[in-house]
Simulated assay, not measured.
Amino acid sequence: DLQDDSFLRRGAPTMHRRVGPSGAVNVGNATNLLGLSCVIDNARFLGSKTCELIAEETERMMRHSLEGQAIELAWIRDNVCNLRPRDYLHMCLKKTSWYSFIYPMRVGAIVAQGEQAAERFCQLGWYVGAAFQIQDDVLNLTGDYQQYRKEIGGDLREGKRTLMLIRLLRVCTHEERRALESYLATPRKARTRSDLIWVRQLMDRYDAIEFARRAARQLAGAALIEALVTFRAVPDSGAKQFIFDLVSYVVNRTR
Rank of each mutant, 00 (worst) to 15 (best):
R214C: 13
K150I: 01
K150E: 03
V234L: 15
I197T: 13
V250F: 03
T192M: 05
N32H: 14
T173G: 13
T173I: 07
N29L: 15
S22G: 11
V250E: 00
V138S: 01
Q218S: 15
A216Y: 00
G125V: 00
V229Y: 14
H90E: 13
I102K: 01
P235R: 06
T230Y: 05
D41R: 13
L184W: 00
D5F: 11
H174A: 15
T192D: 08
C122L: 13
R84L: 13
F101D: 02
R106E: 10
D78A: 10
F244T: 09
T50F: 03
G159E: 03
I40S: 12
H16I: 01
V199M: 03
E158T: 07
I152F: 03
A12C: 09
S37I: 12
G35A: 11
I76V: 15
F242K: 15
Y249M: 09
V107L: 05
V128H: 01
R84V: 13
Y99L: 09
N29D: 15
G68H: 04
S248F: 09
F45H: 13
P235C: 10
K49S: 13
S6R: 03
V247D: 03
A216K: 01
F45C: 11
R214E: 15
H64L: 10
V138Y: 02
R9H: 10
A223L: 02
V19Q: 08
N29I: 12
V251P: 00
R170E: 14
V171N: 02
I209F: 04
T31F: 13
G159N: 04
C92Q: 03
R17A: 08
N32L: 15
E56P: 09
L89R: 08
M61A: 13
I166H: 00
Y145Q: 08
P235S: 09
R213Y: 04
I243C: 09
T142N: 06
G20T: 08
L2K: 04
A70H: 06
R149H: 12
C122W: 04
V27W: 00
D137W: 01
E158C: 07
G47H: 08
I225T: 14
T186H: 04
I225G: 04
A131I: 01
M164H: 01
V27C: 07
A208T: 01
Q201S: 15
S6L: 05
A239L: 12
F45V: 14
V250M: 05
K189G: 10
A216N: 03
A12Y: 12
A117K: 02
A216V: 02
V111P: 03
R253Y: 06
P85H: 07
L196C: 10
Q3P: 09
D41L: 14
V171L: 05
E151C: 11
Q133E: 02
L168P: 00
E175N: 12
T14Q: 08
Y206I: 03
R44K: 14
E119D: 15
G108H: 06
R17F: 06
L246G: 04
A118N: 02
P235T: 09
L184M: 10
N32T: 11
D245W: 04
L83S: 05
L165S: 00
C81H: 07
D137P: 00
G108E: 08
L46P: 02
K189T: 12
L141K: 00
K94P: 02
M91W: 01
Y145P: 05
